[in-house]
Amino acid sequence: MTDSIRIRASLENGVTRVQAIIRHPMEAGYGIEEGTGGRRPQHFIRELICRHGEDVVLRCDWSRAVSKNPYLSFSFTGANAGESFSISWKDNQEKSDAATVVIEGPAGS
């Protein structure tokens, strides 16, 4: 699963606001598979890590009850525009992905 992460990280008044959407089925394992009639296997992100440079600013443990194509928003301080922010995730099937963006400065700067 590559290219699954969309991130916006923008700095304003010293606070970097992060909004991210991750393309992932977040399958709880209750659904019935079309054709076979069997249960769809669980498939969900278990761990997600947000880093400013190398520093972990937020670490998440998720369950099957985070919505499909998860949305996450939070903020952190201490970053400068132009520095890197990254998100990486790993799911219960040992699949993973990571993405890095440059923190945007205030509009017009």
Binding site: Y30, L58, W62, S63, S67, F74
Partner: peptide, 27 residues
């Protein structure tokens, strides 16, 4: 979510520079 089949949904560990607000979407 109190009445979900599995109530625990998510846990967020905030670094010292992380703001005191988390937004997401849940089932």
């Amino acid at each position: 979510a109190a009445k979900n089949p599995h109530p625990l949904i998510a846990h967020f560990e905030l670094g010292s520079r992380c703001g005191a607000a988390i937004a997401t979407r849940i089932k």
